[in-house]
Structure formats: C-alpha cells, structure tokens
Design a protein around this nucleic acid. Structure first.
Lengths: 209, 209
DNA sequence: TTCAACTTGGAATTCCTCTTCCGCTTGGCT
DNA sequence: AGCCAAGCGGAAGAGGAATTCCAAGTTGAA
C-alpha cells in the first residue's frame, strides 16, 4: 500500500527546494523558530507557497533534518559495536555534538528544545537502548562509576549543548572544553542520589521551558 | 545628593507589594518571561498599576531579586576566603545552584537567559575576580588542570543550570548529579584548545537567545 | 469636609507572527 | 493552441502579548 503521492509540478518542486535551502540556512544561524515569513522572503516566494508545501512546521523540520538524524542513529549503532564501551560512548557524544555544531537548528532539534517531533522521538527510541548497553558495559568494566545511567549521558549531552548554544556565535570551539569536562566528569564523578529512571531521559530531551 | 523619593501612598504601596509577591511566585515557576497581564491578574490589580510601578521589566526584576543577588555575591566573597581553593569553588557553585533551584526565574537571571540587567552585570564584575583568584590558586595547588579559567567555571555553571531547567518540574534533584559530573570534570579534564579569554564569560552569561 | 494630586482598572492600541483565503498565473496534457 | 488543475503571491484575519490612555475612585493634608 504505497501512498502514491503525485509528483509536484516542476515550478512547485523548484520552489520547494528554494524554501528548504533558505530554511536550512536561516535555521542553522537562528535556530528552529525562524518566522515562516522570513523563510519565504529569503526563498523569494510568498507565504502561500510556504504553507501549502509545509502546512506544519514539523513537515518542514522532517524534510530538512531527517537525513541528519539518520546519520546520528548510525553513529549510535557504530558506537555500540565498539569493543571499548567507554571509547564508544565518548566517540558517539563527540560526533553527535560535532554535527550539532554545524547548525543551531539541528542542535535544538536533537536536544529538542520543545520541538519533539515524531522523528526525533523515534530516533531516541532507537538510540537509547544502544547507549544503555554501552553504559552497562562501561560500568561493568569499571570505566564508569556504578549507578551511571543513560539519563546521565543525556544530561551530559544537554550540558555541552547549552554551552554550545551560548558560545556558538563568538567562540565556536568552546564547547569542546565543555565536552572534555562532561566526559571526564562522567568517568570520575561520584553520582549522588538515586539513579534516575528511564523517564528522566525524555524529560531532559523535552520541552525545556 | 539623595534622590529624595517621595513615599508611595498607602494603597500604592500595598499594591506594589501584591505585585511583587505575585511576580515572585509566578517567576519561580515559569521563569522571567511571565506576561505582565498574568502578574497583574494574580495580584488582583490592573495593568495600569503594573506599568506605573514597574515601567520596565528590569525595574521589576531589580526589585524582586536584588537581595538574592547580593546573597550570591556574599557567597563568592566567603568562598574566596577559603584556604582550600578548590573546596571554595565547589562550595560556591553548589550554594549558588541551590539558590537557583528555589526559583526558575532567579536561575534565568543569574545565568542571564537574555536578561542581563545592570544588576547582574555588576554582580558578575564583583564575582569574577574572586573566582579567578580561586581558580588561579587551585591550579597552582594542582587541584585544577593547567589552563583552567573562570570561563570554564562559568561554563560549568551554565551546564548544570541547563539540566536544572530541563528537569526542575519532574526530577528536582537531578541537577545534583550534573553538578557532580561538572565538578569532577573540572578537576580531571584535559582541557583542549586555547584557554578562553575573559570575554568568554560575558558571552556565556549573555543572551542565549 | 474639601480638594488637588495621586492611583486605579481595564479598554484600546500597537506590534508581531501565524494562518487562511482568494483572484490571478503557469505547467503539462490533449 | 487551449484548457484547467495545480500553484502562486500577498493581503486579510486571528491571536497573544506589550504598552498606552483616561474616566473614575482614593488618599491624606489642610
């Protein structure tokens, strides 16, 4: 049961590409919440076109970022195959953040500043078990403190991301220091309190604000 | 040259207090950007009252939070007197975050999510030299890696704060794990890249969007 | 008690962005 | 060439918050 989507007319397809390009560039600089009007203007089309092609902002985000998100999922899979669990975790976090460094919008999406699309939702569902496996292995190997959970890893991600967002315009490499701090901290911290349960992850990745 | 502010009429003063109380409570839960109308409604006054008393949101923030900010400055001074530099730093960061945990709005203010008031500006100017001194001492004592700077400390603050904001509603203690990670990370990280200069601090504390 | 100055509540206005709508244009097919 | 569904641009309407304004109500000094 294919959905048999009729292909777009040539002019419509051209405009769609113009809109996607404009949206990508604006979102890379300004984040996901660029006004539709700005995108339309940058693309040289009218608002009508914008809305006909992407009635929901989600539709736009999906079209823009789904391949990047697939890439991140593949990173997680690759990391999960690493024999050295800690090395896999560190590598995965660094790669993911490097991707986010390319685009503010993508970073916001992956850390879901209030834009948890179904796309990202599913990505997290795929990646969390992989990360959880790595963490369990790393704990067993003594590479991480007992009690470390996927939520702590997610927290590290959010933490470095917040520095990236704050410094992106003027010190685009500063986040690497934050990453070094977060990674070293995960290894050496004495984690207080009860280990957070699985729901803590969703919480970190959803709707800050 | 005193400014000889004429005292408010009794009803005006009463309403001022009602507004401050309402604003404090709303901002504790929802952050600094609560609509003026919500505050006025919660206080049981009209918008006119709100605007006559606090024409700029800054005026309101100053009245609400200046004493908290003074408290934080005193924490910094006290920490600077600690003979063990690292202990002073860790203690200061934890205390400051505990205060921020009381109120989302105060946290946003101290980490200046785009609300860098003159008040906070001055507080940072007072605290940064104190923190810088502690860090220099800690580095000399081998408690922090060489190259650690106040900006790295500020980054740790922002990092933990981001976790606090994300988890405040549902896991109000989770930030302590993030703090443990950040502190352990500062001590053990191998900080890459050139040490950030002083301007990096302002950058971290200003206008994350 | 009186009254000028100060306050007040909330309606009106402004500003922005989102979203819809519609008369005109264009691509693709016959 | 001619048709017309698909597509187009941008004006108009809707919604939410910021800010202004003013007729009516209070306060407190004389």
């Amino acid at each position: 049961m294919t959905d048999a989507v009729p292909p777009l007319r040539r002019d419509a397809e051209r405009n769609r590409q113009l809109l996607l390009r404009a949206a990508y560039e604006l979102m890379a600089v300004n984040g996901l919440n660029v006004p539709y009007e700005d995108i339309a203007r940058a693309a040289g089309t009218g608002m009508g076109t914008m809305y006909r092609r992407f009635p929901q902002r989600q539709d736009l985000l999906d079209a823009l970022f789904s391949e990047h998100i697939d890439t991140v999922i593949q990173l997680a899979e690759q990391a999960a195959g690493n024999e050295d669990a800690w090395a896999g975790l560190a590598w995965f976090l660094e790669r993911q953040l490097e991707i986010e460094a390319q685009s503010r919008g993508l970073g916001e999406l992956l850390r879901s500043r209030s834009q948890a699309t179904a796309l990202v939702q599913r990505a997290h569902e795929r990646m969390t078990p992989l990360v959880a496996g790595l963490i369990a292995r790393a704990v067993r190997a003594g590479q991480l403190p007992p009690g470390a959970t996927p939520a702590d890893f997610a927290a590290a991600h959010v933490m470095v991301g917040s520095v990236m967002d704050a410094s992106r315009d003027h010190a685009p490499r500063l986040w690497r220091r934050a990453l070094a701090v977060a990674l070293a901290g995960l290894r050496h911290a004495d984690l207080p309190g009860d280990p957070p349960d699985e729901t803590a992850i969703d919480l970190l990745y959803n709707d800050h604000r």
